[in-house]
């Protein structure tokens, strides 16, 4: 134990391990720092941040599914000014690594505005551009649904920032490879996927949707196979690094997504069920690597035969 190498390079920044709590499941980090030292993580992607403060969607926002959940939070966040002035300084007290900034928006200008503000923060290592939130833009249509609009956002942001830009893609598309190639051509430094799958549940008693917004993003262990498939397809089609996510619950899931082509792996819904989930995956990773006779985690990236 302890002899294996878990370090990976993510767009010029070395991560101690490839484990990254996903945006929307880890707040701005300090809430989890009350539970454990979050410096054990590779990094984390903070709550999707927009230009203006947002309350998000009406409640109920959450529904349960077999092996998963649906959320329609709708990018609730305090707005980028408050994030820069209050949330990041608070995070600095408990996290000494670079954090991944997750950027949301409703127009090209908004994405650029927010990305520029966060690009100027020393604490931020990467900009993860969320062009794929299923809970805004009136029921699933978003910039990430089409190659042209996805590329437009990425190109506009890329022109204005210095830090690596990661395009976070939606799985709710007909051809994920076409979108991945479009954002790569637009200058994206990396790609992360998958965001949540658009889903819906109905209360049999009331005959109404359980979620006030009707539809929401389906996440949890049930979606891992979709993530493995899409990461595999995209990693084989582009030459920029891919961050895999979707249903990751164990260190074994991390290895599977990395074999599919991921350089690093985000952990989402698992953090909401077990607040220690990401830490426990980090702690378990060396044991599972030894079990599968992996000395250096880099040797398995894209290693699916």
């Amino acid at each position: 134990m302890g002899k294996v190498n878990t370090k990976v390079d993510l767009l010029g920044i070395e991560l101690d391990n490839p484990i990254i709590p996903a945006s929307g499941t880890f707040g701005y980090g300090y809430e989890f720092a009350e539970l454990y030292d979050i410096n054990i993580l590779g990094t984390f992607s903070f709550k999707g941040t927009t230009k203006d403060p947002r309350f998000g969607n009406p409640t109920p926002r959450i529904a349960e599914c077999p092996a998963g959940m649906i959320n329609a939070v709708g990018l609730q966040n305090p707005g980028v000014e408050k994030v820069v002035e209050e949330e990041l300084p608070r995070l600095a007290k408990c996290f000494n690594k670079k954090v991944m900034a997750n950027v949301g928006g409703f127009s090209v200008d908004e994405y650029v505005y927010t990305a520029k503000k966060l690009d100027a923060c020393d604490q931020v290592g990467w900009l993860e551009i969320n062009i794929s939130c299923p809970n805004v833009h009136g029921g699933g249509v978003n910039f990430g649904s089409y190659p042209d609009s996805a590329a437009e956002i990425i190109a506009a942001v890329k022109k204005e920032v210095k830090k690596p830009v990661i395009a976070k893609l939606s799985p709710n598309v007909t051809d994920i490879v076409a979108i991945a190639k479009a954002v790569e051509a637009a200058g994206a430094d990396g790609i992360s996927l998958i965001n949540t799958l658009l889903g819906m549940r109905i209360n049999l008693n009331t005959r109404k949707p359980i979620i006030a917004n009707k539809m929401g993003g389906f996440s949890g262990s049930a979606i891992l196979p979709v993530a493995v498939r899409m990461v595999y397809q995209v990693a084989n089609a582009v030459s920029i690094p891919v961050i895999g996510m979707g249903g990751v619950t164990t260190a074994e899931d991390v290895l599977e997504l990395m074999m599919a082509g991921a350089t690093a792996v985000e952990v989402g819904a698992a953090n909401l069920i077990d607040p220690y989930a990401s830490r426990d995956i980090v702690l378990d990773l060396p044991r599972v690597m030894e079990k599968y006779r992996i000395n250096d985690i880099n040797e398995i990236i894209g290693g699916c035969k």
């Binding site: 929307g24 499941t25 880890f26 707040g27 809430e31 989890f32 709550k47 309350f55 998000g56 409640t59 109920p60 926002r61 959450i62 529904a63 959940m69 959320n71 939070v73 609730q76 359980i210 953090n271 909401l272 069920i273 607040p275």
Partner: peptide, 22 residues
């Protein structure tokens, strides 16, 4: 009472508006 995802403040699933903010 509200439907919750995590129960400890991480998911923002159970937010409400109050006169003192969200």
């Amino acid at each position: 009472e509200e439907r919750m995802g995590c129960g400890f403040g991480a998911c923002m699933g159970c937010s409400c508006k109050t006169l003192y903010g969200n």
